[in-house]
């Protein structure tokens, strides 16, 4: 027999899956706009929707705690919901930040965008893995994410070094740096989501 609490937990799960899908679309749209020269105007609405969903997840999580006093895996799931929902919300927010860079800097068609596009591919794969790991409660998949975070971090640092020594186009290097910074933050959140999936399934808290 289903427990009363299951209704709330299932609703939370559905909301997080919606956020997962929407945040992947938002990041993909922002990267697409950068690499293909679009404006990504649809991203703003997605980011706003993700923020609203994040608040709804927080409210529902609090309500389930207040009503049912969850314990064990139920409690771990709700605790992880806060982190995972925040991660999906931040994916959307950084996608919007990327689009805003494009609005400010205008046409970047003449810039060498390969480093950003390559890093974006890794980041988007991390987002997909974090989303799939959550959907399937797949600890093995979740544990593969941190190694990829190192790749993104390295790309960001390399770019910074390049910018510091470069004599080239400031517009290109500055926009690339900003976007890489947002990708680096997205990668961090993908790692946190992976850690939260691990915590739901195993109870193992991430180490600082």
């Amino acid at each position: 027999m289903a427990r009363l609490m299951d209704m709330g937990l299932n609703q939370l799960n559905t909301m997080l899956l919606d956020m997962s899908s929407l945040s992947q679309t938002a990041v993909a749209a922002s990267i697409d706009a950068y690499s293909k020269g679009g404006r990504g105007s649809e991203v703003r609405k997605m980011a706003e929707r993700l923020q609203a969903l994040h608040r709804q997840v927080s409210d529902l999580s609090m309500e389930v705690i207040a009503r049912y006093q969850p314990v064990a895996s139920d409690l771990r799931f709700i605790k992880a919901c806060f982190e995972i929902s925040y991660g999906f919300f931040r994916y959307g927010r950084y996608a919007l930040d990327i689009v805003e860079v494009l609005e400010i800097f205008g046409d970047l068609a003449k810039c060498d965008r390969s480093a950003v596009v390559d890093t974006a591919k890794v980041t988007q794969e991390m987002i997909r893995m974090s989303a799939d790991a959550f959907a399937r409660r797949d600890v093995n998949l979740a544990r593969k994410i941190p190694a990829m975070d190192d790749t993104v971090d390295e790309s960001y640092r390399n770019n910074l070094m390049k910018v510091m020594n470069a004599k080239g186009n400031l517009k290109c290097s500055l926009s690339g740096t900003l976007i890489l910074r947002y990708l680096e933050r997205i990668a961090d959140h993908a790692t946190y989501i992976g850690e939260s999936v691990d915590y739901i399934v195993t109870g193992i808290e991430p180490t600082a």
């Binding site: 427990r3 314990v71 064990a72 895996s73 409690l75 109870g203």
Partner: peptide
């Protein structure tokens, strides 16, 4: 209550 080691405990308390 947060991370029981036994499946039986988990099932009872949840």
């Amino acid at each position: 209550f947060e991370n029981p080691r036994q499946e039986l405990t988990e099932r009872y308390i949840t």
